[in-house]
Nucleic acid binder design. Structure first.
Lengths: 211, 211
DNA sequence: AACCTCGGCTTGACACTGTCATTCCGCACG
DNA sequence: CGTGCGGAATGACAGTGTCAAGCCGAGGTT
């Protein structure tokens, strides 16, 4: 049931110095394994030992690298939020030649699409009992993503859209809309009321009804 | 570390017939225990055996009653959503003498307040890998809660508010707003940008900016 | 060259968990 | 009086997270 017999348990170990840029250190390899594990078994399904097996290291290596299961999942959530930020940045760049309000919709769509493409990681990020939501790196990644949306809102306000409202409040409303849509979809609330609705169309409708 | 020595392991067992209304059957007692457990240890912290110990039954009783850990958590999430519906109903009733738009705000506030008062259960409901989001009872409870909000929206539209838009879409937008606010708050996204903001004021602002 | 040191990883152990299989027991019915 | 039978208890087992200890090779010191 497990692996075939016993063939060289830990085949390769690279120099740990992590100084050169040859390959990512063990932490990155473990996060890669954890991401696959989360994608396959859900947010709570990534066990330290399963990750260790996939990365072909000892069962304690992930716990040593991240101090904790919680630490490992927090690092994974952080990486997800960082990549979310990159995704949003690309969305803004791709729509840079269009009016700011359409850029805003595009950012929102990118947010929802990215969460829909990574349901396990999205749920993990939404599991305060599995990760440390006060982790500094995670908070920094969140702020980076937030600032992207915030800048687009400021740009739209410069064109007169809701210019009389504070940018933080407007950006928060937009953030709430896209995050709420993604969360409701993921959690199954929309299956009954909107059975055949595509997430993309649904969010576009919600966004446009407010904008 | 565990319980003190060994004093009569399973003190009381009531007739299982569940026919009369003396006390709730074992299922309800187990759900009570599970709710305490979730409140203390988070959504993922409620183990079958901890629930069994708290309810003073054998370690297998919860699994037998709910077939599964997943089944137990699904039943708990269902009870949360049912109570959420009751809470929303009360909020509507308490604001029945006010204009529909204010009723709408009150329902939204009630939603957020209820989730804030039960953070563990809210997170549980938002954990698709721990519960069965397609469970019929859970879906029914969701639809009941949804219909409350939907009715308030219809009432507001009857007064002319967004009367030209489909009620489902408007209600969805409101739902997304309140759920998104509650989720972002719970998941720690707002701690950095809005450090001293109270959830209640924050949601009121978001709701009013859209309405 | 021999020795030490130390960080990164492994090994071993333990309590705890979810689930399967089996057993127990009170109660309605023949 | 048996006698099923269903709800619950007991036993067992593989997995899991984490603590503690051991290993081992690279780098410095003498």
């Amino acid at each position: 049931m497990t692996v075939s017999s016993d063939a060289d348990p830990y085949p390769v170990r690279m120099a740990s110095s992590t100084a050169d840029g040859s390959g990512t250190s063990l932490r990155e390899a473990l996060l890669d394994a954890a991401e696959i594990e989360v994608g396959a078994s859900g947010a709570g399904g990534a066990s330290l030992r399963a990750v260790a097996r996939r990365a072909r290291v000892s069962h304690q290596a992930p716990a040593y690298a991240f101090t904790n299961r919680r630490g490992m999942l927090t690092a994974l959530a952080t990486r997800y939020v960082e990549r979310l930020g990159e995704h949003l940045t690309h969305a803004v760049a791709n729509a840079s030649d269009r009016p700011p309000l359409e850029q805003l919709v595009e950012v929102g769509m990118a947010y929802v699409e990215f969460s829909g493409a990574n349901p396990g990681l999205f749920s993990l990020t939404a599991s305060p009992d599995q990760i440390d939501i006060d982790d500094p790196a995670l908070s920094a990644a969140r702020e980076a993503s937030w600032s992207i949306l915030h800048d687009v809102v400021v740009e739209a306000q410069r064109e007169g859209w809701r210019a009389h409202l504070p940018a933080e409040g407007v950006a928060l409303t937009c953030w709430v809309l896209v995050h709420g849509s993604a969360a409701l979809w993921r959690e199954g609330w929309l299956a009954a009321q909107f059975p055949r609705a595509e997430l993309r169309e649904l969010v576009r409708g919600v966004l446009l009804s407010v904008i």
